[in-house]
């Protein structure tokens, strides 16, 4: 058995193959939490009296954050879907 094969079998037996994906999932979840919190802060600030320049800046930031949250949720959904698909395949095997 070559060392590469040995490492592959260790990864398989220790179920380390999903490690990277779960790491990515964790990262995105954490980021989404932070983005949601920031969105809430921005929304609260938006209700306050602001000058035109500040309002424009805030609006821009809100638009960016909304888009990023949307993108983040999409990535999370994809990762979840991939995960459940993998689990199903394993069960079938």
């Amino acid at each position: 058995m070559s060392i590469k094969k040995f490492i592959a079998s260790v990864i398989e037996s220790l179920k380390l193959d999903g490690f990277e994906k779960s790491g990515k999932k964790k990262s995105i979840k954490r980021l989404l939490e932070k983005l949601e919190l920031r969105k809430e802060i921005l929304n609260n600030t938006y209700k306050k009296k602001l000058n035109k320049k500040e309002k424009k800046e805030l609006k821009e930031e809100l638009a960016i954050i909304t888009l990023q949250i949307k993108k983040g949720n999409k990535i999370l959904d994809e990762l979840n879907a991939q995960n459940s698909k993998n689990n199903q395949t394993k069960k079938e095997i």
């Binding site: 980021l31 932070k34 821009e60 930031e61 960016i64 990023q68």
Partner: peptide, 15 residues
Amino acid sequence: DEEDVIVLLLSKAKI
């Protein structure tokens, strides 16, 4: 180290 700040600032810079 705040990821949300980085994401926001980079997007803003691109716009």
